[in-house]
Design a binder for these strands. Structure first.
Lengths: 110, 110
DNA sequence: CGGTATCCGCATCGATACTG
DNA sequence: CAGTATCGATGCGGATACCG
């Protein structure tokens, strides 16, 4: 997602540039709920994302230091994803979104 | 933005479907800051949005009852945008995003 | 298991012109 | 002032195939 100039007038823009990707918030949310997840575990939780998209979003989150990727040199391969401390700092945003979304779903037909 | 199936497992998805549009959060933020804004006032605050996009996002926010559009039948035309009570209820999300974005911009080079 | 690589359709978005 | 209409390019993202 682009980093719009009005970032300077609204820091929300900076937030969106980091966690505004199509599946990023959902990924962060499930990683927060589960602490550690392997690729396919995460994929089962977010089945509407293709392998490609899930990997791409994870790479971006990793590049932005929100997510840690730990590779175990074993066969079959084992890779674990978890939140970094910085990633955990997004929690207030996630919780606000989760709470608002939940109340919306409750009010309107879920 | 689409409404992913994992909405059912993560209400954040519902939130994103309402405020996840390209300029929606920034729009909501400025409307919260200013209470009432005319179309061109808002456009000056979000100059990277084209007229088309700004209008489109505002229509969607209006359809979702987050924003109220008040038209004054005068020449030249006068239209005022403001948050509905429901729109104001998103504030916790906006503030969380703003706070996190601000601290990020402070830590890294803005 | 945990991914890449490639191709490509199609929605999104920008640019431009025009209007009440 | 506050938009709409239209066209066309871009790039996101899905489908598929393949790899260490």
């Amino acid at each position: 997602m682009k980093n719009p100039p009005s970032t300077y007038r609204c820091p929300c823009g900076a937030t969106l540039s980091l966690i505004g990707g199509k599946y990023k918030i959902v990924i962060l949310w499930f990683l927060y709920q589960n602490s550690v997840l392997r690729f396919n575990e995460l994929h089962r939780l977010v089945p509407e994302a293709t392998t490609k998209m899930l990997a791409q979003q994870l790479r971006e989150l990793e590049a932005d230091k929100l997510v840690e990727r730990k590779v175990y040199p074993v066969v079959p391969p084992k890779v674990e994803y978890s939140l970094t401390p910085f990633g955990r700092s997004v929690l207030p945003v996630l919780e606000a979104m989760n709470a608002w979304g939940a109340s919306y779903l409750e009010a309107h037909g879920a």
